[in-house]
Design a protein around this nucleic acid. Structure first.
Lengths: 256, 256
DNA sequence: CGTACTATTGAGCGCTCTCAAAACCAGTGG
DNA sequence: CCACTGGTTTTGAGAGCGCTCAATAGTACG
């Protein structure tokens, strides 16, 4: 996901503000149309920018919960550890997506989050956010919807893991990625995977070999072109059929 | 789940209040320790009791979202429909558990909810709840934690579906049910399933025949006794091993 | 150019699904 | 009381998907 992005240009010094319209849709979702005073408050007191390199952690399992994190550019992997110490990938986060919600209940992070590539991250102090919510119902509602969206995401994932074949899971994964890129102004047809086959397989409940084989099969069938991390979708309709999606695609309103 | 319960006695007329301490833990979580005025407000303006019979719906897919629902007695199945029109069971809800959160994002229910047996349900007007949250930070925090708990639940489920064998899934399911019963003051060792093998299988991503076979196998191994819907856990330690749970329950590693 | 990592490809096997039949159970009506 | 019906559960047999193990190939980087 090395698509060029304003935040990657080292010269643009954006400090704490969230002016970049392409990224930080999650934050836009929080900030947009708020009255100017509150917006300034948010940007000055709550938000903080940070750049992390590939492999660096935003937070780790056991860290006390203090902040939510919005991806501004790059991508992030969130995973937990299961009994034997193995990773379980819970999700990949693209620009505009919010992570860290899983820690709110216990006050301790249940997952770790590491950057899959050099990424720009906007940190949100949760305590302050809650305080602002009290005086600003609009903000509160948006936060509720962010929770709800996470829950909806998980529900979709449960369906995927519970009922779908390896083929369907991977097709779904590609289409979902594609839509998220498109929503953010990147190409829907052509993109780079920032995660390995192993991580994809882990996320989808498949062996990495299965992921590799299926990508090869999709390519044979002329549904996609794939070379290492680079993917191009050739026939999204056909891919959607493979994914077992209804033909008239449900238009999901991902943001706002 | 036909355990006797105060709310099942037809004579006890409890009206709108949530005095019953055994059930409505979710609501207790909301109400408890709040100042008396607010508590009364909650109980009078927000909550409403209702009895539903087996097979009756609390809400259905497409209904506009207005309320959250807390199970007071009985049990509820929440499911969505997938492309071909088949059910996908998203969860079973026991007394004290809260459902309906999935609808907040879109304002429309993504799932249907039906009673698995005659059940007593407490309905919560969400709009009013949000209003009260604005003036009462403590309430707001509790609501946040309820969201977060739902997310945590989904995460656990994702691990189950993604990485675990049929055997592990079912053992987990039984233990999880058992713990929830115990938390509510019912027997942890002996209970009735209010859901069919088909529904269990659907929930766990297994064929109903597999569920049946595994229950039989657990019985052969003297881990449980099972006759139709009635289950008795004989060796929960051994069952926990089968489930792949860590023996010394969760020592958290604090890195750095 | 060598090392370490990632990805591809092949072979074989086992878990879980599907299909099918029979047993069991509850409710209904003769 | 029994036969009948519809639903649920059990049990069996066979097949296939996806896993594991293993070897090879490709890529990045010092």
């Amino acid at each position: 996901m090395s698509q060029s992005h304003p935040a990657n240009r080292p010269s643009t010094m954006e400090s704490l503000s969230c002016a970049c319209s392409v990224c930080s849709m999650a934050l836009n979702c929080l900030c947009k149309d708020l009255d100017a005073v509150l917006k300034t408050q948010l940007e000055n007191e709550v938000l903080r920018n940070r750049v992390v390199n590939r492999g660096q952690a935003l937070f780790e399992i056991g860290d006390t919960f203090q902040r939510l994190y919005a991806v501004r550019s790059g991508s992030v992997k969130v995973y937990s550890l299961i009994d034997n110490g193995e990773e379980q990938v819970m999700g990949f986060y693209l620009p505009g997506e919010l992570l860290g919600l899983e820690a709110i209940d216990q006050g301790v992070h249940e997952c770790s989050a590491v950057a899959l590539e050099t990424s720009s991250i906007c940190e949100v102090k949760f305590k302050r956010l809650e305080q602002l919510c009290s005086v600003q119902p609009a903000l509160q509602q948006r936060l509720h919807r962010l929770y709800a969206r996470e829950i909806a995401r998980d529900y979709a994932m449960l369906q995927l893991l519970g009922r779908k074949s390896a083929e369907q899971r991977l097709a779904n994964f590609l289409l979902h990625l594609s839509r998220r890129f498109a929503d953010r102004g990147y190409s829907a047809e052509e993109f780079n995977l920032s995660m390995s086959r192993h991580e994809i397989g882990n996320y989808l409940g498949l062996a990495l070999e299965t992921v590799s084989r299926l990508l090869a099969r999709f390519q044979e069938q002329k549904l996609i072109e794939v070379k290492r991390r680079h993917v191009r979708l050739l026939k999204r309709q056909a891919l959607a059929v493979v994914a077992g999606e209804p033909l008239n695609p449900v238009v999901r309103h991902h943001y706002h």
